[in-house]
Amino acid sequence: MPLWTYVTARWQALLMDSYLHASAVVQATVLAALIGVGLGVAVYRSPLGSAVATALTSAILTIPSFALLGLLIPVLGLGVPPTMVALVLYALLPIVRNTVVGLNGVDRSVVDAARGIGMSRLRVLTGVELRLAWPAILAGMRVSTQLLMGIAAIAAYVKGPGLGNLIFSGLSRVGSVNAVELALVGTVGVIVIALLLDGAYVLVGRLTTSRGIRD
């Protein structure tokens, strides 16, 4: 079992790469959530604004990740900065779209009642609308996280952190000893982390969604 031997021999390094990979994805998702929810809140009341925001963020998603990362090198150099910028940009679409859909899905009579009993605009947004849209926003974040798991692997191209380094170095030495194993371990690692994070989302969803609106 050369693969197994390889894994046990490089356990520490693998764990480090996995951690860096997950950490980059989670941080990028959180950052994208802050920006995306803000953007969604800014545009959801206007159909035109919503359409523009959705179109812009989906345009980003159509740029091949390899190209985007490469184009960021002259601006941001190598390593973490271009990686994070690219990941945040890719994570925006699902979050913005779900925020807009979630906020528009809030029952108008509930908002009317909230205003009618004297809640301020800000309070209605934070205390009612975002609370009710939260399951949709969280679902958007979950999709973004899954999306970023794969894209983060490509970031090794700009010397970014994570399991992509294993895959890249493996693929660049195809034919030599352990090359395939290297790429395989990296890929499987990405899948395992993706599943773990997905499980975490279910847990976070249960803990942060009111029992009154949970399915």
Binding site: S109, V110, A113, A114, G116, G118, S120, R131, S210
Partner: peptide, 22 residues
């Protein structure tokens, strides 16, 4: 307006209760 509304009771069709609150 917000102060005013806190002193005027408001009840609407289908109640408009906050579903996420008890």
């Amino acid at each position: 307006p917000d102060e005013l509304r806190r002193r005027i009771g408001y009840a609407i069709q289908q109640a408009g209760l906050f579903p996420h609150l008890t």
